[in-house]
């Protein structure tokens, strides 16, 4: 009797000695079951001050940007070479001249703006004037220190544009309102109809304007118009709010 009591007491004492080890084993089981989450989180928390900072992230971003710019330059060079092979005129960013808008009347009888640079800065009649986003007009006349721009919205303004998606040519006509009119030169085929939202740009084969300049988006289109579809165009660059423009030599 007394012996059995002694053995129970002994077992209880040995269990009290073992319980820390059982706890460790249980904890390790949890670690195993959670795929080491606690360890990883703790490691992350402890090493946070030593993580790669914003500088390294910027380096990577700069590297990516540099790579993209290099690719763009290579593609542009390739494009210029191919255009030269096809005897098409080309434009380059090197010919851009920045000028301030010193007078504007985009809503009156004359949709024109006057720029603070003229022939002494190299601007000539017929140069393309770009706002943020696309073409806004053509240089109509120059003085030594100013240049007058006929906006695309001005009555009598007409330039050739094309729809890069359907490869259809048209004429963009200024009618005095904020939105000029596109008149396509021929009917769209069944396979490739111009749609609202299509981008219009200057023709890639243009001999008057720099090629492939974005101009605007087709807002509405009347496909029943005779002899060819007509539409209203929303210009990408709004001349009402532009203080600086760029003139592209061509």
């Amino acid at each position: 009797m007394g012996g059995s009591n002694r053995s129970v007491i002994y077992g209880w004492r040995s269990l009290r000695r073992l319980w820390p080890w059982l706890l460790v084993a249980f904890s390790l089981c949890i670690v195993r079951w959670s795929k080491g989450a606690v360890f990883l989180d703790t490691y992350a928390f402890l090493t946070r001050p030593f993580w790669p900072g914003t500088a390294q992230r910027d380096w990577i971003k700069n590297g990516t940007q540099l790579e993209q710019e290099s690719r763009l330059r290579l593609l542009e060079a390739d494009n210029q070479r191919l255009r030269a092979m096809l005897s098409l005129k080309s434009s380059s960013k090197a010919g851009l001249i920045s000028a301030a808008v010193i007078s504007r009347s985009p809503n009156g009888w004359w949709q024109q703006i006057v720029l603070g640079k003229g022939s002494t800065a190299g601007i000539a009649q017929g140069d393309a004037v770009l706002g943020p986003g696309g073409l806004i007009g053509i240089i109509q006349s120059v003085t030594p220190i100013t240049a007058r721009v006929r906006l695309l919205t001005a009555p009598g303004s007409r330039i050739g544009v094309w729809n890069p998606r359907t490869k259809r040519h048209g004429i963009l006509l200024g009618i005095g309102t904020n939105r000029p009119v596109i008149r396509f030169l021929d009917k769209d085929s069944k396979d490739s109809k111009s749609l609202s939202g299509d981008l219009l740009s200057t023709s890639p084969a243009s001999t008057i304007l720099p090629p492939n300049l974005p101009v605007g988006l087709i807002q509405t289109l009347d496909e029943q118009a005779i002899p060819a579809p007509e539409g209203i165009v929303q210009l990408i660059a709004a001349p009402e709010a532009i203080d600086w423009v760029q003139i592209q030599k061509f």
């Binding site: 809503n107 009156g108 009888w109 009555p155 009598g156 007409r158 006509l173 200024g174 009618i175 005095g176 309102t177 009119v181 008149r183 007509e230």
Partner: peptide, 21 residues
């Protein structure tokens, strides 16, 4: 003058923007 002497003006029925101006 704009309506009668500019070809493109004939597109949009007498240029209502002119009336607004």
């Amino acid at each position: 003058q704009i309506v009668f002497f500019q070809e493109s003006a004939l597109l949009n029925a007498f240029y209502m923007w002119g009336l607004r101006n």
